[in-house]
Amino acid sequence: MARVFSTENTDPFEGKDSFDGETFDGLTLERADLSDREFCNCVFRRSKLSESRWMRTRLEGCVFERCDLTQANTNMLSLRGVSFSSCKLMGIDWTNIAKFPDVSFEDCDMRYNVMDSLALRKTRFERCSITESVIAATDLAGAVFEECRFMGTRFEDCDLRNAQFPRSHDLFVDPAKNNVKGARVPLETVMLLAASFGMHVLGFTEKDSG
């Protein structure tokens, strides 16, 4: 039977580097060092893991629910079939995670994130706040951003071919700096792009009557 670790355990990770099918619920381990470990089919729930370190750790088939991973160190973290739901993921630099991550995000706070030179093709982001972030040289072809917010976020040199942004807000993508062929963006994005060139969209701006 899989074990459930909670705040009653001082440090459930001490002295062990491999975990399979276990649940970690309600942990309070800010700045914990979880480097060089392997988690397979594990669940992390309602745990405070801000500024924790996951260097060279492997996560496979894992689920994070309502966890706080603010400013976590993800250097060489391997993500295979991992999902984050209702998590705080603020201030994370994902740039140096292991190659070809398989991950999804739902209802997550991803403010102040950095994603540079990543392979996130067909990755799903649902109802996430991805504001004030930098996304550069990243393959997001076929990715889905549903009901996400992007205020202040910059896309630079990204592959956004056939990416979808249904019901997303505050999205600005410059076609001169990104590959956007086939991308499906909200009308609001078209208006923001037109405004950046000093144009007005007839029927949608105050000066549309000419």
Rank of each mutant, 00 (worst) to 15 (best):
R121Q: 13
L59A: 04
T28W: 08
D116L: 11
A2Q: 15
A32Y: 00
A195M: 01
S83A: 13
A143L: 03
P175Y: 01
C148M: 03
A194D: 02
T57D: 03
N113Y: 02
E30G: 00
R80I: 07
T70M: 15
L187Y: 11
N179D: 15
L27E: 06
S6L: 10
F172S: 06
G182A: 10
A119H: 14
L69Y: 07
R111I: 08
E38G: 14
N178Q: 08
D109M: 11
C67V: 03
C128A: 03
R149M: 07
G152C: 01
A136M: 12
T70S: 15
E30K: 12
E147F: 01
T57K: 07
L140A: 06
L49F: 03
L79M: 12
G15Y: 04
T123D: 04
L193G: 00
F125V: 00
T7M: 05
P186W: 06
G198M: 01
L160R: 03
D208Q: 02
I135T: 12
S168G: 10
G91S: 03
R3I: 08
M55Y: 09
P166N: 08
S209E: 09
F13R: 06
C40L: 15
L77E: 05
D157Y: 13
L69E: 08
Q164K: 12
V185T: 10
L202Y: 08
D93A: 11
R80A: 12
F84H: 04
F197C: 00
F100C: 03
R149C: 09
K88S: 15
G26L: 03
E126K: 09
L120N: 11
C67G: 04
E126F: 10
S50Y: 15
S196K: 01
V82Q: 08
G182T: 08
K88R: 15
N9Y: 04
G21V: 09
G203V: 04
A137I: 05
S86Y: 09
F172E: 03
L79A: 05
F145Y: 07
P166H: 09
F125I: 01
S83P: 00
C87W: 06
T123N: 04
G26R: 04
S47E: 08
E156R: 14
L193F: 02
G182W: 08
R46H: 14
R53M: 08
D208I: 00
G91C: 04
S47I: 05
E132D: 13
T95Q: 10
Q71I: 04
